[in-house]
Design a protein around this nucleic acid. Structure first.
Lengths: 220, 220
DNA sequence: GCAACGTCGTGAAAATTTCCCGGCCCCGCG
DNA sequence: CGCGGGGCCGGGAAATTTTCACGACGTTGC
């Protein structure tokens, strides 16, 4: 597609929000919205059908989330250009998204021009990160808190997940085939490594770092 | 405003999302968007200036949240018509919003027509609740979980808030001028009343019920 | 007055957390 | 190969917390 408009696919579970993307993007002559999807699975399916030049997508979605969708799309097409557009003003999510293969990360609090600019940047092969996330990222390097995924061993991380899933120590011991005592020890080790004193702090740290996704608690 | 279009104010901290509302609403002849705001405080200020016939607003916003904004606006104008439009597919939030004075609650996952329909309903004096929330609400009546704000005494609720704010038992005892022992007892009582076994469950129940707002953990 | 309730606190048993330890396995290195 | 380092698994024991029963007190409502 030499110099005709670039084909863009929008992914967001909120129809009204997609309408917003569309309205903002269509003001830019170089862009043309050719497809939409409302969850990760649909995004992957539609991507294979229409092969858009650019995907703009949210992270918080029912079923398979945005991160996983990015991974799958990139696995199918190593050159896919994906721009994340989300409400999460949080460095941890940005890191996850970029690692999964996103080429840009813009928060929904940004002015519309920023989205358009980022879209053009990504299409031109550049990496686009919105300023607020740049700032967050800088902060998280300097004196930021420990990153669970970094300091915890695989086993510890697994136990952390299960603890967050509201499973009792005994249940965890059972499904992991280890003694409850070991679970208690792991629990303690995890808190120590993360520099946290109570379970309450633990849960909130996990949320900040995106280990506990919102989807997990949105429904009663 | 006999039969000219009704004046609508949009409140959402995401500019692109407001663009979506606008795009969807302007297709409806009876509606005219006359103002926008990006947080609760601005919403209150702008409301007093333009006195719109209808306010459509999100709940999750920086600074004073949507619930508080609803309360203030309704305090200033008992007849204000406010329609909540949010991503929270959660009965607890809906209950809070309605109690604060909202006349409608629609989730962002709803199709655009639902939003338009709800807007017209609220303008006509009806209460508008989207079907998914109706369903949640029904569920929460039948066998739903206990509501913290209902079963806890004021003191207990206060302690719960402080626990969630990551304050240590000793700090709480100090600022409340009671013995640490009493805090421990309250902590225990709270968990008992809410039918919860661990602090982890406690935090997640609090999140579901909107006692711990996202704003509190969104930033690192 | 008195019953019901929320608040504050004590006490003491039960359970958990905390911390140190040793053993096991695997891997990289001199 | 021998050796140290790491992750994994759990025992043990002290320290702390959780749990629960029990008073005492003031308020509220009947």
């Amino acid at each position: 597609m030499k110099d005709s408009a670039a084909a863009v696919m929008l992914v967001d579970d909120h129809a009204v929000v997609r309408e917003g993307y569309r309205s903002v993007l269509q003001k830019q002559p170089g862009l043309r919205v050719v497809a939409e999807a409302s969850d990760g699975a649909e995004a992957y399916r539609r991507f294979k059908e229409v092969k858009p030049d650019l995907v703009i997508m949210d992270l918080a979605m029912p079923g398979i989330g945005g991160i996983e969708a990015i991974r799958r799309i990139r696995q199918w097409d190593r050159n896919a250009r994906i721009l994340v557009f989300t409400m999460h003003q949080n460095a941890a999510f940005a890191v996850q998204a970029i690692r999964a293969g996103a080429r840009g990360y813009v928060t929904k609090t940004s002015p519309p021009e920023t989205l358009v600019q980022a879209a053009m940047d990504v299409l031109a092969g550049r990496i686009a990160i919105s300023p607020d996330i740049d700032h967050e990222l800088a902060l998280s390097r300097l004196g930021g808190e420990v990153v669970a995924a970094d300091v915890l061993s695989p086993r510890e991380f697994e136990v952390l997940r299960m603890l967050l899933a509201e499973r009792s120590s005994d249940e965890i011991a059972d499904t992991l085939h280890i003694s409850p005592k070991t679970v208690a020890n792991l629990h303690y080790l995890i808190k120590t490594k993360l520099g946290v004193d109570s379970d309450i702090e633990l849960v909130r740290l996990a949320m900040r770092q995106g280990i506990l996704s919102q989807g997990d608690w949105g429904e009663a």
